[in-house]
Design a protein around this nucleic acid. Structure first.
Lengths: 219, 219
DNA sequence: ACCTGAACACCGTTCAAGT
DNA sequence: ACCTGAACACCGTTCAAGT
């Protein structure tokens, strides 16, 4: 699965898809949320910028390969414990880490025209856990789709926004005029206390509700 | 709030911030998810591309103004009925419509360095509804933040992916080898049956769990 | 005070030419 | 079979010049 030996910037051997993907990820992480240009990518590989076109049709052909490589990290690291709720929770948190570590991933995934191989692996594992909970097939399918969207959507949003400005936001909301914003000013001190904590809060709400529905079918 | 009279492409009167924002939204909607260039914007306004720089510092100064205008649509349209759960639900669905109708909105919002005025209005209304449910201040704050992220994250994801390929995805997942993908192939027919339906499924799960927590505090 | 137009430093991509 | 390098049609942004 695209696992040619990675080669550094000084590689004088031939270019491979795997090396291009590796270099792209390394550059993307260094650039933060800024796009990586093919000129920069070529420079990092010690190669003409247009050499990439010999291995990928165009940039939108390269991006899904990058996304799939990142999803492989999640799929490879996951070790099921057998408890459906714990397994879904673990996988969601691990996936979130990858999204936050690579702010570009969400955009890359949205670019992919077809289901990526490693996305399929993650879906299969999630569906297995959810079906074993007692949910119906239709409920399990909806839950998997929802969790997929929740993880990708919420994680990438917090990756794009960055965590540095949280306190500034909280302070600005606390300073709003209390007559027009009574509720906001009253609870401002509880706002934006950590993207990860809020992600877990929402994840546990969803898991609570799924468990309730699963238990109801078993009674 | 930036409500100068809009002017069309043939406007010979002077340029205003409101007219620029209007033209940007019109162009962005026509372009789909593709970025709107300042050159195109200038052409649509019948003006030199760089004239925009007389009213906005740069492009990243214009984008938040566009986002705020779109959020105003949601805030202006909302009519509370008094039932907290119904109100949160209605607002979430209306917000989703705007996100889906304007696929660029999510990226624009992530670009905003400070809370936008109309985002503050929406937060205040949501917090009012959630606090009236019986949740604690901390729970209401967490719930509001979660709902904000859920709506923006999930809606913009489905806006970016488009709805056209749903059936292709479903078919491709159904055609996976059943020995390696037993769960996926078993439930494939329930997958990707509508972004809006799945959004409501998740929203109702979250509201169910919030209501359970609120009721528990009142007993 | 606001708009224009040339210019600068970037993009992705194509294609003939090299090896 | 793969890589190079010039070229094309785009970007956002700056700045002197116009009115």
């Amino acid at each position: 699965m695209g696992s040619e030996p990675a080669q550094g910037a000084s590689g004088s051997s031939r270019l491979t898809r795997g090396a291009i993907v590796d270099a792209y990820i390394a550059l993307a992480d260094r650039e933060g949320k800024a796009e990586v240009s093919l000129r920069l990518l070529g420079e990092a590989l010690g190669v003409d910028p247009t050499a990439v076109y010999r291995h990928f049709r165009d940039k939108s052909d390269l991006l899904p390969a990058v996304a799939d490589r990142l999803l492989a990290e999640v799929a490879d690291a996951f070790q099921p414990c057998g408890d459906w709720r714990q397994d879904v929770r673990t996988m969601a948190l691990e996936a979130r880490e990858v999204y936050v570590a690579h702010p570009q991933l969400a955009r890359l995934l949205a670019e992919s025209p077809a289901p990526l191989p490693n996305n399929e692996r993650l879906m299969e594992v999630s569906l297995g856990a959810l079906r074993s909970s007692g949910l119906s097939d239709a409920e399990a399918a909806n839950a998997m789709e929802l969790l997929e969207n929740y993880i990708a959507g919420v994680s990438s949003l917090s990756a794009e926004m960055g965590t540095a400005e949280d306190e500034a936001w909280r302070r600005q909301l606390a300073a709003l005029p209390p007559d027009r914003f009574p509720n906001t000013t009253a609870v401002a001190k509880h706002l934006y206390r950590g993207d990860r904590e809020n992600f877990e809060f929402g994840l546990d709400l969803i898991l609570d509700a799924l468990q309730t529905r699963a238990d109801r079918r078993h009674s």
